[in-house]
Design a protein around this nucleic acid. Structure first.
Lengths: 218, 218
DNA sequence: TAGATTGTTAATCGATTAACAATC
DNA sequence: TAGATTGTTAATCGATTAACAATC
């Protein structure tokens, strides 16, 4: 997937989804090509950095012309692994889980919510979008049989580590954790924690010290 | 608030909430002091970096002893602006809004959810925790009269920019945006976007390329 | 005093940006 | 050909880490 194998900096990988969304928006407006300068305007990223970032994976542009919007879109999707369906198992069918299940932006990037699980008998069997909520005891078999690689944790804090363990044991390789506790996962499993409170505390700092205005983040 | 005014790097500010949570956990276990080495173990941050980070704001430790857990906790809370109540207005009383409203971790850091708003007549007037859902037309007056500085956007994507405009007009200085569109805010308003899809795409990369295992994030 | 650990300086490392030759 | 814009090298900038003198 990577033409030049070097180990790509974290920052580069964080910017790729931003480029991707911008390219998709450009395609909507029927732009055939885009320069790094224009892409820089739209994303707020320095044009030189955009070109440098892409260099990590190959050369996708044409000197004097720019980048083909469609082609670059495809390339970035391939780099990220978003060029094919990625099935997701969601654990937790409460308010947060329901919000995630109804999140239409998932589809546009090839993510397919394939199963929703809960341990609450009152929730098991209920409909959530086009899915039925299954009991969490069926999680292991479900993940194995469908070879699901991505799990999302949207359960109460106390259950987070148990769910993480189950997901990892079943063979999931990537976990998004929406509880405020940082769960422990075995080596090789990619973990991403999202904690609203950390985000609030972080922005709070800039509020009190009048740091230089905007900080826009993904 | 800052002893040495230099302009504190983004990374430092991002780590402060991590230190804070770790210190609070240490206080629970009745640890009176902690060394940068121990704090490094617990947070996964290099001890030298922890000491360097704190230097930006003053010197809080004692050579040969370490840091007083309680005192350092207070200092970091003061630095972040979490040493006093911070009132929040939440817009959107759907599943996501309800999940946020029920999020107990908010309280432990001094955040006070003061108002919940929606434009759906079916939701207005209903109870959400200890609050009543108010109509979004009352948002402006509410924010002004209570001098609320923080707004959270948890509405459908199409309404995001409108809500952001209302919040900014009413005088909010910090916005957490949970929709996948990046809203535009005037200079001086701190904006933080949280998009599950970007986070998924980002982690997806490490999944397909077998980047070196864990990446643990706040 | 001896041991521990900070605060800080200096060294290293990496990431961002500027500049420009290659080339469409 | 002239103008534009890439890919890439070199320069700058900033952040991380190591080392150590200060000092509890």
């Amino acid at each position: 997937m990577r033409s030049k194998s070097k180990r790509v900096p974290e920052g580069v990988v964080e910017r790729l989804p931003l480029y991707l969304d911008t390219l998709l928006a450009l395609a909507d407006t029927r732009q055939a090509t885009v320069s790094s300068a224009r892409l820089g305007e739209l994303t707020g990223v320095n044009p030189a950095q955009i070109r440098r970032d892409l260099t990590h994976f190959g050369s996708f542009g044409q000197r004097g012309v720019g980048y083909d919007v469609g082609a670059l879109t495809t390339h970035i999707q391939r780099i990220l692994g978003a060029d094919h369906a990625n099935r997701i198992a969601l654990v937790g069918a409460g308010n947060l889980g329901t919000a995630i299940a109804n999140y239409s932006a998932l589809d546009t990037h090839g993510f397919v919510l394939s199963g929703v699980f809960d341990n609450d008998p009152a929730k098991v069997g209920r409909d959530l979008g086009r899915l039925h909520v299954q009991h969490v005891d069926q999680l292991d078999e479900f993940i194995r049989s469908l070879e699901i690689a991505i799990g999302i944790i949207a359960v109460p804090t106390v259950a987070a580590q148990d769910v993480a363990d189950r997901l990892c044991r079943a063979g999931v390789r990537c976990i998004l954790n929406y509880t405020p506790v940082s769960v422990v996962v075995p080596e090789g499993v990619v973990l991403h924690n999202t904690d609203p409170v950390h985000e609030l505390l972080h922005t709070l700092y800039y509020l009190s010290t009048r740091g230089e205005g905007d900080l826009a983040e993904g």
